[in-house]
Design a protein around this nucleic acid. Structure first.
Lengths: 232, 232
DNA sequence: AGGAAACGCGAGCGATCACTCGTGTTTGTC
DNA sequence: GACAAACACGAGTGATCGCTCGCGTTTCCT
């Protein structure tokens, strides 16, 4: 043993050239497009290779099988996502009023999903292989945990089961609204949908938190009175 | 022309015996199980036939292709669903206070989806053929329209765009919560999740409707103070 | 009874897909 | 320049899937 200087990593420490790294990102980008358009199972490896303008043989030089493509893509997306929204849950945001807190948490998540629609396509389908589902469950659990901590911070005396239920429901509501946001065309209509989603979360969580401004006329972001301007 | 007395129907007026009708429902039930377990694309026709304890040839005597199985299943489910919740939107329910109105609308929908989990599996997947997607869009549009009429009834002076946005958002929130309800184990936990979902919708819609009881202590159904009982 | 038609079967056909392999090309190192 | 290794290719392979076809069985009608 100890024949190679690099024996600390995987059993296959394949040396990659710069060209190879470029091919990998190129293939992952192509896979993202095909997954997004047709879903995981309907996406053929030949179609991914064609989208990347390479041969099937080249694809299989960098990925052992189709699942590995989705797993690697999922891992990179999760890394980006944790990085993008990680700062949203910093402790200093706990001091913010609820509307601003919602902005800080919701906006990065929506922006990420708008920029990477393949993420939902991979995480959401019931057709994905088990490995992706595990990744998704882990990410989901970590997000829920952050929301739960946030809620528990405002309700230290509540039973943990209640906090979990509120966190789960808030996140489920967000996911439902997220689909609506992504379905809306980019522009003012999407912005209005985002504002409406924040309204839902605000009205749901405000009585729970019980300290914010229950002002019916202080919308979160742009669009005063976006929601059904009640005529007096 | 006019050779057969029955030329008013389809070009293929295949006469079915009672045995055949039984086989069809049996095959559709088997298809529902397989679709629910593996999704549409991953479900093979041979697997459906095996689940129904018939041969592939028998399956294709009643359905021209795999898509037709899903379409027929979808149509029967939609018929059941419209029948089940149709009474929820009767005009007399417009007079109900918001909590009771929510019960009348939400409960039948949740009960249907709990009894027929294959419905969401078929409607929700992005892998389904175009025919199913069209059916889903039609049902979705009709449901949204009913919600929109409900909202417009309370807000006759609001811009239509606002009513549509509120109806869309309320329905999206319901769908998100529905997944959470189905993920919860049957029993008190599921009931609590249902109550929580109604809380979300109540708090969102109550200021919109602007006439209901914004009482923080009048839960919709069972479970007084289910939500994070705030200690005074 | 007896004929027609619906029912039922399962081996097999063509197409497609994930994946391989033998061969040729480019890149890094001495 | 020479050698090795990474890179690139694309026709081909085995497996699977949607679906067919020929033939035997059951049911209905007269």
């Amino acid at each position: 043993m100890s024949e190679k200087p690099e024996m600390s990593e995987d059993p296959k420490p394949r040396r990659r050239q710069a060209r190879g790294e470029r091919r990998i990102t190129q293939l992952l980008q192509a896979a993202a497009n095909v997954f997004c358009a047709n879903g995981y199972t309907a996406a053929s490896t030949n179609a991914i290779a064609r989208e990347a303008h390479v041969s099937p043989g080249t694809l299989y030089q960098y990925f052992p099988n189709k699942e590995a493509i989705a797993v690697e893509l999922g891992e990179r997306l999760m890394y980006e996502m944790r990085e993008a929204h990680g700062q949203a849950f910093t402790p200093e945001n706990l001091a913010l009023p609820l509307p601003e807190l919602l902005d800080a948490v919701v906006d990065p998540l929506i922006a990420f999903n708008c920029a990477n629609p393949v993420f939902l396509a991979l995480m959401h389908g019931s057709e994905v292989p088990g490995k992706i589902a595990e990744e998704h469950d882990a990410l989901h659990a970590s997000l829920i945990e952050r929301v739960r901590l946030l809620i528990a911070h405002y309700l230290p005396d509540s039973p943990p089961a209640d906090c979990v239920r509120v966190a789960d429901m808030a996140f489920a509501v967000f996911k439902g609204g997220l689909h609506l946001v992504l379905a809306a065309p980019e522009g003012p209509e999407r912005d209005a949908t985002i504002a409406e989603l924040k309204q839902v979360l605000l009205r749901y969580l405000d009585p729970v938190i019980g300290q914010g401004t229950l002002a019916a006329g202080t919308p979160a972001i742009a669009g005063g009175g976006v929601t059904t301007s009640r005529t007096p």
